[in-house]
Design a protein around this nucleic acid. Structure first.
Lengths: 343, 343
DNA sequence: CTGAAAGCGCTTACAG
DNA sequence: CTGAAAGCGCTTACAG
C-alpha cells in the first residue's frame, strides 16, 4: 500500500546502488550487470516501485500518448475502430487519449488547443466534420497526425481510407447488373471526400450500364436525415427499386423506414446496399449487402503510418487506400451471373 | 510553426519578466498584475507558447487524467457512456485515457499495471468481467476508482449502478400484469451483481403475481449466447409468452431470433422487455420496451463521485443507485390498467 | 505583486 | 558496467 510515493531513489537506497542504475534497469535498451538487475528488481518489488511515466515523458520528450479525435460514436464503425486502435497502439507501447469533437466544425478549435496542451506524440483524426483550417493548423504545429476514414485532397496529409470511388463503382455496377432500373443514392456528407468519392464512383458505375441515378440525396451520414430521405424518395409517383446508402449506419435506418413506415420488403420491393460492414450488418434482421471497410487493415495502416511519422521514418506513401470488397448478403438481389469480385 | 519547443523561459525573456511570472499567468489561481499579464500573454502568443502539461503534472502530482477501463464496446451502452464521460470530464478539466480490457478476467492484470504506470488520478471501471482481486489490488494501491454500471457487494467500493433489483421487479410485475403466463428470463452474467440483482428482482416481481419464471438462462450479456438461449426456450413443447432480457444488447438478438429464425411476432406471440434503453431501443425496427439506465445521470454521479474522491472531499455515499424507469414501447403487450410508474 | 531558488522523478551524456 | 552531474519544463514556498 504505497500511500507515500516510491521513487527510483528509494529503490536505489534499498538496493545499494545509484538512482541512475535503477533507471537503467527499467529502461529497455540499457545495459546493467545481471547481479545489479537482480538487486534492483527485488528492492523495487519489495517497495512496490513503478517508474513514473510522466517524468520519463518529460525528459524523453515523448508522452507515448496518441490523441484520438472522434465525433460520431453512434455510428458503430467508430467504437469498433476505437477498440482496435487502442489495442494495436497498446501493443506498440502507446495509449489513447480521447477527445470527443463536437459535431459542429466551429467547435473544433478548443479541442485542438486541448490536444496540443497534452503533449500527445501524434493524433488520429477519425471525425468527419473537420475543416481545412483544422488540418492546416495541425500541420503548422508540426505534430504528426493521420486522417482515419477521412480523406482530403491535399496529398501532403497522411490519410487512410477505403477505396471509396471503387467501392461506390462496385455498388453501382452490382445494382445495375441486378436488373434494377431506378437506383437511388442516399449519400454521405458531400462536403467530405469519402461521401463525394462514393457517390462519384456510384454514378460512374451506373454509367457503365448506361444508367443514371434515380436520385441522390445528401444525408450527411446522419440517421434522421436518412429516414427523411427515404420518405422523400418514396413520396412521388415513380419510386426507386434500389438504394445505395453512404454507410451502414444510415442503411439500417433506410431498411427500417422501408419496412416499418412504408411497408416495403427488402429486397423484394427494393434492394439496399450499404458501406462499412460493421458487425451489425451481419445481423439477420438487417442482413445487409455492403462494401466492407476493413477496420483491421485500416487500423494497422493507420498505426504503422502514424508511428513511422513519429519516429521520423520515411514512409512510402502518405495516402493509403484499402480495398472495399463487396459483401453479399440478403438485402439486395444478386445478379444471376455475378462473379465473386464484381465482374 | 514552433518546430523548436517554446518554453516558459523563452516567453519570460521576450516579455522581460521572470519564468515563474510566466507560469503564474498560466496558472488559474495565481495573482499577477494586469500589466504583466498583458506583456506575458502577447509574448506567449507571438511565440506560440503553450504550457507543458507533463511538467505541470509532474510537479503538482496530478495528471488530470482518468483511466477508463472498458471491455464491451459492442454493447452500445458503453460507447454512449464513453462519450458522455469524456465530455463531462473535459468540462471539469480532466481527460480520458482508454484501457481496453480483454473479456477474460485473467488478462486484466497487465491492464492494471499499465494503468498504474500512467499516473492517472482516478479510474473508472466500466467493464463487466472483473474479479475481486482486481478491485482489491486497486484499493491497495490507494488510487481512487469507481465502478460504473457494475456493482460489488463490498460496500467500501465506490459504485454507480441502476436500481437493478427494482428494475427487474418492475419488469416481472409489468409482464405478469400484462397477462403473460410463461415468462422467461435471458439473464446477464450471473457472476455479476447487476445480472443477479435484475434476475432476483424479476423473480420477486413475478412472485407478487404468484408466478414463477418459465425459465432463467444465463447468457453472460453476450449476443451469441442470447441467440442460443432463445432457440433453447422455444425448442420444447411449452414455450414462453414473454421474455425479460438482461440488457438491450441481448434483447435485440432475441427479437431478431424470434422474428427471423422462429417466425414469431413481437409482441403478438411473445413480449420482450430489455434493460438499458440505449438509443437503438427506440428504433422502430426494435421498438423495445425496456428499463432505462439513465446514462446521463449515471455519468454525472460517477464523475462527481470520482472527482470528490480525488480531491479528498467527503462523499455522502459510495454506493449510488439510479432509478430505472420503465419505458413503454411496442415490444411488449401493455396491461390494460397499467399506470405510468408500475402500479 | 515579483524574482531567485529549490525540486517534481526521471534520463542521458560524461567520466571512470 | 556504474556513478556524479546536469537538466526536462514546469510549480511553489520563500523573501522582498
Amino acid at each position: 500500500m504505497p500511500q507515500i510515493k516510491i521513487t527510483a531513489l528509494d529503490v536505489a537506497r534499498r538496493a545499494g546502488v545509484s538512482q541512475p542504475t535503477v533507471s537503467r534497469v527499467f529502461t529497455p535498451g540499457a545495459k546493467v550487470s545481471p547481479s545489479l538487475i537482480d538487486k534492483v528488481k527485488t528492492a523495487a518489488r519489495e517497495l512496490g516501485y513503478r517508474p513514473n511515466t510522466l517524468a520519463r515523458s518529460l525528459i524523453t520528450g515523448r508522452s507515448k500518448t496518441i490523441g484520438l479525435v472522434v465525433a460520431y460514436l453512434n455510428n458503430p464503425f467508430y467504437p469498433e475502430a476505437l477498440e482496435k486502435l487502442s489495442v494495436s497502439l497498446n501493443d506498440r507501447g502507446y495509449h489513447i487519449m480521447v477527445f470527443i469533437a463536437a459535431n459542429l466544425a466551429e467547435e473544433i478549435d478548443p479541442v485542438i488547443d486541448d490536444l496540443l496542451d497534452h503533449q500527445v506524440d501524434g493524433i488520429i483524426l477519425a471525425s468527419v466534420s473537420m475543416s481545412n483550417e483544422l488540418t492546416d493548423r495541425l500541420s503548422d504545429e508540426g505534430i504528426p497526425f493521420v486522417l482515419f476514414n477521412r480523406g482530403q485532397q491535399n496529398p501532403k496529409l497522411a490519410q487512410v481510407t477505403a477505396a471509396n470511388f471503387e467501392g461506390g463503382h462496385k455498388a453501382g455496377r452490382f445494382l445495375a447488373a441486378g436488373g434494377h432500373k431506378r437506383i437511388a443514392h442516399i449519400s454521405g456528407w458531400q462536403k467530405s471526400l469519402n461521401g463525394r468519392d462514393r457517390q462519384a464512383g456510384f454514378i460512374a458505375g451506373l454509367e457503365t450500364f448506361d444508367q443514371q441515378p434515380f436520385k441522390c440525396i445528401d444525408s450527411h451520414y446522419r440517421r434522421e436525415m436518412a429516414i427523411d430521405a427515404t420518405h422523400q424518395l418514396f413520396s412521388g409517383d415513380t419510386v426507386p427499386d434500389a438504394i445505395f446508402v453512404g454507410n451502414d449506419h444510415m442503411a439500417f435506418a433506410v431498411i427500417e423506414t422501408l419496412r416499418c413506415d412504408l411497408g416495403l420488403r427488402v429486397p423484394d420491393d427494393v434492394s439496399v446496399v450499404g458501406y462499412d460492414d460493421v458487425q451489425m450488418a451481419a445481423w439477420k434482421i438487417y442482413d445487409l449487402t455492403t462494401l466492407r471497410q476493413p477496420a483491421n487493415r485500416m487500423v494497422d495502416a493507420t498505426v504503422d503510418l502514424l508511428l513511422a511519422m513519429i519516429d521520423g521514418d520515411s514512409v512510402s506513401s502518405l495516402k493509403i487506400e484499402i480495398d472495399s470488397p463487396l459483401i453479399l448478403r440478403g438485402s439486395a438481389r444478386i445478379p444471376d451471373n455475378w462473379s465473386k469480385e464484381g465482374g
